[in-house]
């Protein structure tokens, strides 16, 4: 860890996906944000965001580029991680409707169903009440989004939409079905940065 007093260094897994938007949102939430593609870059961050993207591709690239095991090790060792959409899928201990060979990192005791809200024509925006975030509901942008079928005892549900769990936290690990990074509303990122600060 290379933590220095001041703002935490938060990496964004940059194998593929909306990395830029997360970097901007994290910077707005007073973190030092940087892209992470290699194990040595992963070793230098205090926390990690796994962005939205195509989860099968991201998982495949993580295997292909030798990132899967280093990521698993750091998550197991307690690295604070926040995953959006594809990132939520990566953080699921168990996955439904994924590819047979699709690897996840795990980190949250939950079962996630991939593309549960449908294909692109069903992608939608809606207001979502988020436990622990003040100032009214957050804007939820759901794109070919997953939902959480069930969570274990250690995981806490932070938001639901239409009866489905769409935000979960377990200890240092946070996951949302939706994409706060696309909205310009940085409150979920600020919530995560607070989590990171609390653990440092």
């Amino acid at each position: 860890m290379t933590h220095t007093p001041g703002n935490p260094v938060i990496g964004v897994l940059a194998l593929q996906g909306d990395v830029r938007e997360h970097l901007i949102a994290l910077a707005a939430a007073d973190a030092v944000a940087r892209p992470v593609r290699r194990p040595e870059e992963l070793a230098e961050v205090d926390a990690l965001v796994i962005p939205g993207g195509e989860s099968t591709t991201m998982s495949k690239l993580a295997v292909l580029f030798g990132m899967l095991e280093p990521l698993r090790e750091r998550v197991r060792a307690g690295l604070p991680v926040y995953g959006t959409c594809a990132g939520m899928i990566m953080l699921a201990d168990k996955l439904l409707d994924g590819r047979e060979d699709q690897e996840t990192l795990g980190g949250i005791d939950m079962i996630v169903r991939r593309n549960a809200f449908g294909r692109q024509n069903e992608s939608f925006e809606a207001k979502v009440d988020f436990a622990g975030i003040e100032g009214g509901p957050v804007e939820g942008v759901f794109i070919r989004a997953p939902w959480v079928e069930s969570v274990g005892a250690a995981a806490e549900v932070l938001a639901t939409y239409d009866g489905h769990t769409v935000a979960v936290r377990q200890g240092n690990v946070l996951a949302t079905s939706f994409h706060p990074e696309l909205t310009g509303d940085d409150r979920v990122h600020a919530y995560f940065v607070d989590m990171v600060r609390a653990g440092l």
Binding site: Q16, G17, G53, Q120, S123, F124, E125, A126, F142, L182
Partner: peptide, 24 residues
């Protein structure tokens, strides 16, 4: 058009879909 409840086919979900493909 958007409703207060939820909206499909908005610019944000259309453009946001392409954001997910970046780097690919």
């Amino acid at each position: 058009p958007q409703s207060a409840e939820s909206a499909i086919g908005t610019s944000r979900v259309k453009r946001g879909m392409a954001e997910q493909l970046k780097g690919g």
